[in-house]
């Protein structure tokens, strides 16, 4: 099963839309004892509405994508630079180092997005017979990364290229991890370094070390604080959501690309709400907002 089929997708969308608001009924059928203030947390109604809107937007976007609706996405320079960076490392005879950051595990969407880009980088490095190293702080990330790289190598017809020892757990400690990755970069002098994932205080240590080795650095993170460091320290940076969009673009799957279109519709909705909210405040009409929110 490559993914759920069209009918199954609709079933899951409907299930999410129906099950979430009907959570109280579900819980009662499970025999759960209710809290004093009811089974369903009424304070979270706005979040339910948000989820329903989001699922509906993604569903409509997926439907349109299946009907060959054009999906226009701007190009992302960091993605375009992947081939050049891997090619440069290959010409220099140096490895490519891929770092997913210390801040994220496999449950984090950012790490999932990073793994999709890793698949593309692994395909290029396998095609060019360039060594790919991925030191990680999380054994589960290592398992997924090993499988991703192995699959990528098989996909381009170079299964022998894959070396499991190059994708390894190094340390769970933040600064121990930083020291280990710094050591790898200092010894191996990589031609390209990818910093894609969730980073914390180690971001600048890693980015600057990569820069000092002369590597092409391509970064992307969802951490707004570390983003400012990566922007000044790296050659190319995927800003925030661009990392998620990049994973969709890399996959080339229209169903995943359609999700970016759905996200954009919601972004327009949020912008509209912000403008309306600002106008209400500017014209001292906050009573309307209070009446709507009930607070």
């Amino acid at each position: 099963m490559r993914s759920l089929g069209g009918v199954s997708t609709v079933v899951v969308i409907v299930a999410l839309c129906v099950v979430v608001p009907c959570g109280s009924v579900l819980a009662q059928e499970m025999g759960a004892s209710a809290a004093d203030d009811g089974v369903f947390d009424m304070r979270r109604i706005p979040e339910v509405i948000g989820i329903v809107l989001f699922v509906a937007a993604l569903g409509i976007a997926a439907y349109l994508a299946r009907r060959d609706f054009p999906i226009n996405l701007r190009s992302l320079p960091p993605l375009n630079a992947v081939d050049d960076a891997v090619g440069r490392a290959t010409e220099q005879g140096t490895p490519v180092v891929y770092i997913t950051g210390w801040g994220g595990d496999m449950a984090r969407p950012t790490t999932m997005a990073s793994m999709v880009v890793l698949g593309q980088v692994a395909q290029r490095t396998a095609e060019y017979n360039c060594r790919l190293m991925l030191p990680s702080h999380d054994p589960l990330v290592v398992s997924v990364a090993q499988e991703t790289v192995s699959q990528a190598a098989r996909a381009v017809g170079h299964p022998d290229w894959y070396r499991s020892d190059d994708i390894a757990f190094v340390s769970q400690s933040q600064l121990g991890y930083s020291a280990a990755v710094d050591g790898i970069m200092a010894r191996e002098r990589p031609g390209a370094v990818f910093l894609l994932g969730t980073f914390e205080g180690e971001a600048l240590i890693l980015a600057e070390t990569a820069n000092r080795t002369g590597a092409v650095t391509i970064a992307g993170t969802d951490s707004t604080i570390q983003l400012s460091f990566l922007l000044v320290a790296c050659d190319f940076t995927l800003i925030g959501e661009e990392l998620f969009a990049a994973s969709g673009i890399v996959s080339g799957d229209r169903r995943i690309l359609s999700a970016i279109m759905g996200q954009d519709w919601l972004r327009y909705l949020i912008i509209t709400l912000i403008i309306v909210g600002a106008a209400l405040v500017a014209f001292d009409m906050t009573d309307i907002g209070t009446a709507i929110s009930g607070q």
Binding site: L4, L16, I51, V55, L58, P109, M112, S247, I256, A259
Partner: peptide
């Protein structure tokens, strides 16, 4: 938006 979208894609089996 990106995180919610990715999470929903996981739930749908697309991601």
């Amino acid at each position: 938006l990106g995180m919610i979208s990715t999470s929903i894609k996981v739930i749908l089996g697309l991601e």
